[in-house]
Design a protein around this nucleic acid. Structure first.
Lengths: 339, 339
DNA sequence: ATTTTTACCGAAAACGTTTCCGAAAAATTA
DNA sequence: TAATTTTTCGGAAACGTTTTCGGTAAAAAT
């Protein structure tokens, strides 16, 4: 596997390497005919510029780091795919790493990526945000970072977030309007900013509609189907079931629904459900699950573009993009008694 | 963002750059004390070797290309995650690209990866395997490639495949043993090798148990839930429903089950189901879906290791690894009439 | 005491590009 | 025709490493 280099094609044509370089990056002065001659014989010789040499010479890695908590679930898979779409089309390579919801691993990954000379970083931080000070330090030292989700509004860096408060408010209000009186929220880990925000939206709806304290409850479940199932087991054991559940995400909702069905309850006739961060499975389960759809692709695209702007111009002002979603009402939250 | 280079630390200590290099790659002769001195002041100065320069100098990119049809579904997400696990731990970076089941895009991705100087490639080829000759040409020219899934046994290259024939035989036989008389197979795209193999296993079971032609059928569905749903619509319209379905994957099975439930059929009482390539959702749907679990992590690990062996030693003989799975029987395929 | 070996280190070439600088050639102007 | 400008190109430095080669000094062997 001997590779053809720029020198080989220069030698073949008796031109200088600079001319060959010029031919490939139509940037500098070069005669049209020589350029075409160079390009055609280069092609014939099977020459492709070595990107590594290019990176070294230009002091740009054209690599971008991405750190997500996981990408086994649809949400972050879609995020990663969308990020790749945008960044690859701009000539970048994308290095994806998972933090696995572990702050130490996340920090290690970020350090690895920074020391690997990535030109910038997009990160969806995990729960323990002790690392944030390090990230901000790097950010302020001029290393471009864009945050995606899971981040407090106060952080002085570019970020793309979903309006969790607003849409969990809408989701909850929808349950109230359907006539459900007793509504529980199965929340995510409470130190996650998205969990906090969804709790806030839930509470807002309760306050607005004057639901009394006895008729709502916030229970910390987690993000996994199993965690939804466990909570339901407890609630059944304690004879403490509401009319409806608003769940932090679809997986928790599906786990909870499953456990209820297995215990003879019917959804939505006995208990209604609405999820969050819609998955494709929402339409495939019975009953179909109502949920809030997030504009994953748009969010990732925005994050990528924000990052590229900061890479190209270090003085680009920081920016916060807040995205909205849509409420998809399906069978699981429709109160037939309303008709 | 000025980076500390090897020269900076050499200058600071009045040693040569070669000594600093030696200190970092404990390969050549260097006195223990000087090495430690260099390492400690390097750390203090915040020096990290520039991997790009290292790659150029060593003529190794330490990059590995991975091409999968998609990674929005669990299966390839897990594959990618497992590949990354192994390869990153060996010091490689992984560049993942999707072919989106489009042969042209796949070819383009592979070319990009090869020209990006990746040290090797792991690929799960998509349907139109017109590209195979190009891949084999590169392979024979000394570029290390390992194939994963979706590939004919005849291809003279290293590969890791799942024993589809055997396990679809087992899955089908399980349905027969449960007493189902009329069994249809919803297959994947017929030009995909995995589809062909699963069809073969299905047929084998039919022949072994002397099921007559009128009592089985192979219907090309695809790989998506929607495609499973469409087929069911047709079958209902034609009053042509069997006792049981063996589906090419869980998504098709879930789509089909959904459509049947919506039309008043009960699973498994009216019609039984078994899927393939188990997903986490199999346990969350009602009834829980029987399926064949593939050892995703093991398969990816094997592929990564095969590739690394070929990268380290070009004369490493090619190897075919055939993996087995497990049959997970759940509610969807249990015939209550049997008791 | 002399020779030989060993341990350690520096100089410099190499990896394959880009890009600055200056010069030759061509085109334009006077 | 001479002078000036513009176009085109080659030489060489630079990017940050690794690694070969050779050399010196110290240690070991004779």
């Amino acid at each position: 596997m001997k590779h053809v280099t720029i020198k080989d094609v220069a030698k073949r044509l008796n031109v200088s390497v600079s001319s060959v370089s010029r031919a490939f990056n139509n940037k500098y002065d070069i005669k049209k005919e020589t350029k075409e001659l160079i390009l055609s014989t280069a092609k014939e010789m099977g020459y492709y510029p070595n990107p590594i040499a290019k990176k070294l010479s230009q002091n740009k890695s054209l690599n971008i780091g991405v750190v997500v908590p996981e990408f086994i679930n649809e949400y972050y898979s879609e995020i990663v795919i969308a990020l790749q779409d945008v960044l690859i089309s701009k000539g970048y390579q994308v290095l994806v790493m998972q933090s696995d919801e572990k702050p130490e691993l996340e920090l290690k990954n970020v350090e690895t990526l920074i020391h690997s000379m990535t030109d910038g970083l997009i990160i969806a931080p995990t729960v323990g945000n002790n690392n944030m000070s390090y990230y901000l330090e790097q950010h302020n030292a001029g290393y471009p970072i864009v945050f995606l989700n899971r981040i407090d509004d106060s952080v002085a860096a570019s970020k793309v977030i979903f309006n969790n408060v607003k849409w969990s408010f809408f989701a909850t209000e929808h349950l109230i309007r359907q006539g459900y009186k007793k509504i529980y929220h199965l929340s995510g880990y409470k130190n996650l900013s998205v969990s906090k925000e969804r709790i806030e939206g839930f509470k807002k709806a309760m306050f607005k509609h004057n639901v009394v304290k006895e008729n709502y409850k916030i229970i910390e479940a987690g993000l996994l189907a199993e965690e939804g199932m466990e909570i339901i087991e407890d609630l059944i054991y304690n004879h403490d079931l509401p009319d409806a559940f608003f769940c932090v995400n679809d997986m928790v909702a599906m786990g909870a629904m499953k456990k209820l069905r297995d215990n003879g309850y019917s959804v939505p006739d006995d208990i209604a459900f609405i999820g969050f961060t819609e998955t494709r499975m929402a339409e495939l389960v019975t009953p179909q699950l109502s949920s809030v759809k997030q504009p994953t692709f748009k969010m990732a695209k925005a994050a990528a573009e924000l990052l590229l702007k900061r890479i190209e111009n270090a003085n680009e002002p920081i920016e916060t993009v807040v995205m909205n979603g849509e409420l998809n009402i399906r069978e699981s939250s429709i109160n037939k008694a309303l008709d």
